[in-house]
Design a protein around this nucleic acid. Structure first.
Lengths: 184, 184
DNA sequence: GTCTATAGAGGGATAGAC
DNA sequence: GTCTATCCCTCTATAGAC
């Protein structure tokens, strides 16, 4: 079971795209095999079970988000880091409308899954913990509550854009959040 | 196909509970039959397809939420109506932790479903439109944006409580929202 | 109206040739 | 390491007796 290889990458990438569009449960191994050009029977050489593929997708989502957060951390000012991250949902509002938040929509599905429920908190917890670290670095009172609010608002924004199928809701919501952080 | 009957009610009620706990896709007709005490083959006398059961669940969720909103509308002051509704997530925070928002979590799943995608906007749109009507009645500027923020924050709150499996996030989030509305 | 039995399709997983 | 063929189970839906 190689941890890295060309075919494994293609399978994982295909799985990630399909899960984003359809969800875990809806995505079949046949879908993933077809989309990645790997024969169905060969999928099991790289991933023992479908469950393993899904956890790999979760891990790759977390890695991707870590990269986005790391880019924001190049600013020395925690307030600017929080503002910097807001460019992400704003710049990806069409993707949010089409597929929802890559962390939140997956977490939401997994939280009802039974076997993958525990993966769900990792996804949303990542953003929440990062935001809390920033608010604490700012030295404001109530950093935990502010981080919750920051995270909840962004998750709610993604959920609305996706379920209402309308990306025009993103800009006003992000603008109001931005203004509130600037006023802190 | 009777629109109302004892067995139909039991089936719908069982479906609603199971969908809340597991989601639509995960819930099987056998689950619903067992849970309601109706034999599997008889389910099809009351609902032609599983798709029909799911839309009936959506309708019943919307009806239930309409009742909650109607109760809030007994107050003549739109600000108090908005505050009144906040008692709902606060009083049901344990249910939110266990199952997520009955509107939002279902809408989130259906938005990736293909055949039921269109039902998704009805669920979340209900709360958004109601909130917007209240803010407009208050005569504040930016009622649409305020309604979006109200809805997004509540949906985000439910998503966090559910995916983090932690109901202690609800109270601080609702409190902050309450304070902001009182300050308007 | 009610229920049993089962058809029929789909999907996860495996055997085993190469 | 790769891939075909297929097993086996689950689930939706129907047929048809009562």
């Amino acid at each position: 079971m190689p941890r890295t290889s060309d075919k494994r990458d293609r399978l994982l990438h295909a799985a990630d795209r399909l899960v984003l569009a359809q969800g875990c449960k809806q995505t079949t191994l046949a879908d993933i095999a077809r989309e990645s050009g790997v024969p169905l029977g060969n999928v099991y050489y790289y991933f023992r079970t479908k469950h393993d593929i899904c956890t790999a997708v979760v891990d790759s989502r977390i890695d991707a988000m870590r990269d986005v957060l790391a880019a924001c951390e190049r600013s020395p000012d925690p307030r600017r880091r929080l503002l910097c991250f807001l460019d992400y949902p704003l710049g990806h509002r069409q993707a949010l409308r089409e597929h929802g938040c890559p962390l939140g929509s997956l977490a939401s599905e997994l939280s009802k899954s039974g076997t993958l429920k525990d993966q769900s908190a990792r996804l949303v917890g990542l953003l929440r913990n990062w935001a809390q670290a920033q608010f604490e670095a700012m030295g404001v009172a109530d950093a935990p509550a502010l981080a919750l609010e920051y995270t909840a608002l962004l998750q709610g924004t993604s959920l609305l854009a996706h379920t209402l199928d309308d990306d025009s809701v993103v800009e006003p919501l992000v603008s109001r959040l931005r203004a509130r952080i600037e006023a802190l």
